[in-house]
Each structure stands twice: as C-alpha cells, then as structure tokens.
Measured scan of single mutants.
Amino acid sequence: MSIQHFRVALIPFFAAFCLPVFAHPETLVKVKDAEDQLGARVGYIELDLNSGKILESFRPEERFPMMSTFKVLLCGAVLSRVDAGQEQLGRRIHYSQNDLVKYSPVTEKHLTDGMTVRELCSAAITMSDNTAANLLLTTIGGPKELTAFLHNMGDHVTRLDRWEPELNEAIPNDERDTTMPAAMATTLRKLLTGELLTLASRQQLIDWMEADKVAGPLLRSALPAGWFIADKSGASERGSRGIIAALGPDGKPSRIVVIYTTGSQATMDERNRQIAEIGASLIKHW
C-alpha cells in the first residue's frame, strides 16, 4: 500500500482517536478583511474532515458561482459510474476541433488520438481543461445529471445548469451553476471519506486533486513544508474566484476548506493574494 493509499484508508480510523479540534476566530477576521479589500462577498467554511463538524464559517449558506470547482464533483460522478460498472477509466473518447472550447490546454493536443476517461478527469482537475469537462459531462448525461447525482448524495443546493464556458457567467442573483460553501464542503467530504465511492475511487479523486497544477498562487502558496493539500480552484466573470481543498499537517488531510468570492473589481492577482492570506491565517491558527 502506497503512502497515498495509506492516508485515505486511515481517514475513518483516525476519527475515533483524534484530539479535539478548536476553532480560531482570527481567520474570520481575515475573511472579513478580504471582503473589505476586494469590495466583494466572500464565503468561507472550515470543516473537520473526520467528524464533519463546522469549525468556522462566514456566509456559509449564501450562493456563489461554482466556477471550475464543479470539476471535482463531476469526476466524482464519473467515478461513481465506474464503480457501478457503467463506465471505464480506460475508455478512449474521440472528439473533433468543433468540440474544443476556450481554455483547453490538454485536449487541444489530442485531437488525433483522443483521450481516456482517466486522462480527461486528470486534465479537468489538474489543468482545469474546459473541453475535458464538457466531454465528461456528456458521458454522464449533461449538467442536469450532475445535479441529480448531487441530489442523490443529499446535496439539494449545488446545481450545474450549463456547459463550459457559459457556466462562468456569474450573474448576480442567478442561481444557475452555483453552490453554497456549507453544501460544497459537505459534499466534498462525502466524496473523499464516505461510502458513495469505493476506496480506490476515493483515492483516485484525491490523487487528481493533489496533482492540481493551476492553484499555486492560492492556499498552496501559504503551505508550510510537510503539509498535505488536494485542491481545485476556479475563476469566472465578475471578479469571481474560489477554491475547495482538503489539507492538513503531517502529510495527511484533516480539514476541508472552501473559499468563494464574487462581485469584485480587483485584479486576479489581488483576488489570489487575499485567498492566500486567508490560508496563511488558517495555518497560523491551526
């Protein structure tokens, strides 16, 4: 058993032996400061991975655009179909130039040979490839079927209504393609630790998130040596930015963190910096 498999397999085991986890309101002070700095709403939640207890939250039940963070949920739905014998990670999917949409750094290189379902999930999560996400959405029946999958998990909040890139429109008060921090954190925890997916599929999902290559300026920039993080970021119109993550010290995840912001006029660099500073406060007061 690899170190990674050891880590995921023991998450339920550690729940019975973990020390009490204490919240630190200092992080919420930073979240509120980020709102002031960005001139935008910020949603935040910090969840204990083992118990599911909410440690801190700010606007946990307000809607925010999901942006590309939905791609983790999408690959969770794909893995659920794999577990049920309805899909194979090794199945190759062929597509054409007409299928390519904006920001497809991986799929645009494989027009001649296509990509496997496994490769598409990797591209969608680690590189946020939009065509990969659309191709995967097609395999499960489209955005409405992803919403149905989430409903069956008990998440009646999170919804996907459109495809890439239209889902990134982020119109104020538009509930399409949105979630709430509390709903996203709970759903992510179920995917990573619950019985919905097999152990192998849970491991695969967290491996893809751990290999994320496009979230460096966010929480990863504040991470001390030896800490673990598996994450997925997102960005969209109207100053929207977000990240969902499982992270913790000693090389294993122990908390879920979800951060969303929307409605800012700030630059992408400034949005990144504010999220990184929230992460730094979280780690300092861990």
Rank of each mutant, 00 (worst) to 15 (best):
R92A: 07
L219E: 01
N272I: 02
A245S: 05
T126S: 10
R189A: 11
T179S: 06
M268H: 07
M184Y: 04
L38T: 06
S80A: 14
L135K: 03
G239R: 03
S240M: 04
S254H: 08
A200L: 08
Y44K: 00
A15E: 04
E175F: 11
A148V: 12
F149I: 07
T187L: 06
P143C: 02
Y44T: 00
V82I: 11
N50A: 15
W163I: 08
E277R: 09
E87S: 03
R159H: 12
S221I: 08
L38W: 06
A40C: 12
K213Q: 13
P143R: 12
I259N: 00
N98K: 15
G234E: 00
S96H: 11
P60H: 13
L111T: 11
M67T: 11
L89F: 07
A77G: 06
S57T: 08
L219M: 05
D231S: 04
I45S: 05
F14S: 07
R7L: 14
T126Q: 09
P217K: 10
A77C: 14
R271L: 15
F17V: 13
L282K: 00
L137I: 08
T262K: 11
A84C: 11
Q4P: 08
S236R: 01
K252Y: 11
A215D: 02
E270G: 07
L38S: 06
T186F: 15
P253H: 06
A222W: 04
Y260V: 03
I275Y: 02
R238Y: 12
L89I: 08
S236E: 04
D48V: 03
V82Y: 06
G251E: 07
H94N: 13
P224N: 01
R63H: 06
E87C: 04
R41H: 10
L205F: 01
D250V: 06
K144G: 14
G90E: 15
P165E: 04
W286E: 00
G52L: 02
I93A: 01
S80N: 13
G242E: 00
N168V: 05
A182R: 15
R81D: 03
E56G: 08
I259S: 00
D207G: 14
H285L: 04
A182E: 12
P60A: 15
V214R: 06
P253Q: 04
K252D: 05
E87Q: 06
E145Y: 08
G226H: 07
G239E: 03
N152K: 14
M268R: 05
E145S: 10
G263R: 07
P249H: 02
W286V: 00
R241N: 06
E145V: 10
T69I: 02
Y44H: 01
A215V: 02
E175A: 11
P249D: 03
T262N: 09
I244Y: 00
H5C: 13
L282M: 15
A16H: 11
Q88G: 09
G251H: 11
T267D: 13
G263W: 09
E166W: 09
I206L: 15
R41P: 08
A211V: 05
H94W: 15
K102E: 11
H156L: 11
A170G: 14
L79F: 01
T178A: 02
Y44D: 00
L167R: 01
A245T: 01
P249E: 03
A16V: 15
R176V: 05
A15T: 15
S201P: 01
T178V: 02
P65Y: 03
R159C: 03
W208C: 01
R241T: 07
S281T: 15
G248A: 01
A84P: 01
L196G: 13
S2R: 11
M268F: 08
R91S: 05
G90F: 11
M67N: 15
R241D: 02
R41S: 08
K53M: 13
Q4H: 12
S201R: 05
N173M: 13
L19N: 15
S236D: 07
I11V: 14
T178R: 01
P249N: 04
R271P: 06
D174Q: 05
R202L: 03
S240N: 15
I3M: 09
E87W: 02
K144R: 14
W163M: 09
K53E: 14
Q88L: 12
E195G: 12
A266S: 14
A133S: 11
L10F: 11
T179I: 00
I244K: 00
E119Q: 13
L219T: 01
F228C: 03
L223Q: 02
K144S: 15
L89C: 04
Q265E: 14
A266G: 09
V101I: 10
M66C: 04
D36G: 15
Y260L: 09
A246Q: 02
R271H: 13
L150M: 09
A77S: 08
P217D: 12
K252M: 11
G154E: 07
S80T: 11
E166F: 12
G142E: 02
Q4D: 08
A280E: 14
R59C: 00
W163G: 06
I206V: 07
T147N: 14
K53T: 13
G52C: 02
E166K: 08
Y95L: 06
T116A: 06
L89P: 06
L223T: 11
P60L: 07
P165M: 04
I283N: 00
D161G: 03
S96I: 09
T158I: 01
E145R: 11
A215K: 03
D250K: 09
T27S: 03
F70G: 03
S264T: 15
I244A: 03
L218G: 04
V8C: 15
L150W: 07
A222V: 15
D83C: 01
Q88P: 02
N168G: 09
L135V: 11
S122G: 09
R241I: 05
